[in-house]
Each structure stands twice: as C-alpha cells, then as structure tokens.
C-alpha cells in the first residue's frame, strides 16, 4: 500500500504529460481545420504568387508549381485528414465491434467461420482493400475513400474485439451478472465494453493514424479526394516532381501526417490511463 502511494504521483504526472502532449498536438490540428471553414490565407485554387517560391512573409511555406499557396493547401489538408481519420475509424469501429462481439457470442462453427474470414481479410494490406472498394464504387471522392478505409479497418477491429470479448466472457463476474438477472445486452454494455474499451481505444488511435496515412496514399495514387480537396497525399504527389528545387512541398505534408498520428496516439494513451480506475492511485 505505502509503496504504491509513493510511486503513484510520479506515474500520474507521466500520464497527464502524455495526455497534454496529445491534446496540444491534436488540438492544434483541430483548430487549424476549424479555421479553414472561416478563413484561409489565399484561395486554394487560385495562383497566389510566382511558381515554386520559397518561404516568405507572404507565403510562409512558399508556393507550389502552379503558384498556389502551400500553407493554404496544408491547412485544408488538416481538415481532410481529420474527417478521414474520424470517419474511417467510426465506420471501422461500428462494423468491427459489432462483428467481433457477434463472433464472441456465436456458436463454434459460426465463430470459426468469422475468425477465418477476418484472418484472410487481414492478410491483405489495408490499402489494397481500400483501393478495391474505391475501384468498385466507380467515383473516387472523399466519402468513397472514407468508407473504403473504414471497411478495411473493420477486419482488424473485429478480430481484436472478438479476442478481448472472449477473454472477458469467461470471467466469473459475467456469470455473477447472469445470476444477478442482467440480460445479455446489459452485460455487453455494462461489463464487456468497459473492460475491452481501454485496449480497443488505443487500437482505434493506431487505426486513425493508419487511415490518415492510407488516405494520403490513396490521394497520391489519384484515388482519394479530387481537387480542390487538397489532401496531404495530393500535396505530396504534386510536389514529387519538384522535390529537389522545392523540398518543402514534400516535407510539410510528412511532418503534418506524423504530428497528427503521434498526437492521436498520445491522446488515446493518456485518456486510457486517466479513465482506468485500476491505474489510479490507491
């Protein structure tokens, strides 16, 4: 007891540091994304200056090969990345958690069939599945990319949910809940989801990062959002030809992607540790 209370404050301090770092990084992206709805430095589709200008007071990140302001493109990219990340994870989580719980409760043969299907789906790279879905929907736009990524991610979420739920289902407190008269839906809501949530939420953060990067890849391949939706992947693709003369066009989307992905992961870790009662001080 005493040793636990002695180490607890330091542990908590570390947890809140992680949480704050995550909040700041993600908050920054959200603030920029919200700002784009009311104000942008320049019209994202218009020529705002000379071609491939370096950073200046007028163009903080310079201009691209068509003379468009790079900072404007990056800001719009933030908005798109957040929409894609949140949308894809929401779809992936909804489908994945439902399928995973279904498998955990299913009879043995149905569970085996679902597990085998999920394993096969997971064997394909996320991006490949997303490309197939986009190709099948025959119009490439932002929403088709989000749905495609959501479906691709759902297999990973479903498999994890299934394993976690099975682990909780054998616990005596589930049997105790049944002998206490709780119905299965109630048991799922009160006992199973709260107990698998910490692991799931960290996984969702990971998926968020994956989705944002995968969307950049889809855009890079021309399967993502069409212009004027300047996603980071498109900025990267357009800067590719001029990467030696104007490297900022390639570096900026990279930094933005990494900072958002890291921010979301820190935020999820921090939230999990703050909410988890077993990690609180005694």
């Amino acid at each position: 007891m005493s040793s636990a209370t002695m180490t607890a404050p330091r542990e908590q301090k570390r947890h809140s540091l992680i949480l704050w770092a995550g909040l700041v990084l993600v908050g920054l992206h959200i603030a920029i994304a919200l700002l784009t709805f009311v104000w942008l430095p320049y019209d994202p589709t218009a020529m705002a200056g000379g071609r491939l200008e370096g950073p200046s007071l007028l163009h903080w990140l310079g201009t691209d090969r068509l003379g468009r302001d790079l900072l404007t493109q990056m800001m719009i990219g933030s908005r798109i990345a957040l929409i894609v990340g949140i949308g894809a994870v929401a779809i992936g989580a909804a489908i994945g958690v439902t399928l995973g719980l279904l498998a955990a409760f299913a009879s043995k043969w149905l569970d085996d069939a679902l597990a085998a299907t999920l394993d096969i789906l997971i064997a394909f790279p996320t991006l490949l599945i997303a490309m197939l879905v986009v190709a099948a929907s025959d119009t490439a736009n932002l929403w088709s990319a989000i749905i495609a990524l959501g479906i691709a991610l759902s297999a990973i979420v479903a498999r994890l949910t299934r394993i976690l739920a099975k682990r909780v289902l054998v616990m005596d407190y589930i049997t105790a809940a049944r002998t206490s008269g709780s119905s299965w839906p109630k048991i799922v809501a009160i006992h199973i989801l709260p107990n698998i949530w910490p692991t799931l939420s960290v996984n969702f953060a990971l998926q968020f990062g994956l989705a944002v990067i995968a969307e950049a890849s889809l855009s890079y391949l021309g399967l993502g959002a069409p212009p004027p939706n300047a996603s980071w992947g498109r900025v990267l693709q357009e800067a590719q030809g001029t990467v030696y003369t104007a490297p900022l066009g390639a570096i900026a989307p990279g930094i933005a992607l990494v900072s958002l992905a890291i921010g979301v992961n820190l935020l999820a870790d921090g939230l999990r540790d703050t909410i988890d009662p077993t990690r609180r001080a005694r």
């Binding site: 616990m171 105790a176 709780s182 119905s183 009160i190 006992h191 709260p194």
Partner: peptide
C-alpha cells in the same frame, strides 16, 4: 475474477437490485 475491475463496489453490489 468475480468482481468487475471497472465498477465501484457500490455498483457491483447493487447489480442484483437493479437487474431484478
């Protein structure tokens, strides 16, 4: 294994009262 680690003692003990 018989007590849900994420519930307070009060809500664990009250579960039969609520559910029944």
């Amino acid at each position: 294994s018989s007590l849900d680690p994420r519930q307070t003692i009060r809500s664990i003990i009250a579960e039969p009262l609520r559910s029944l």
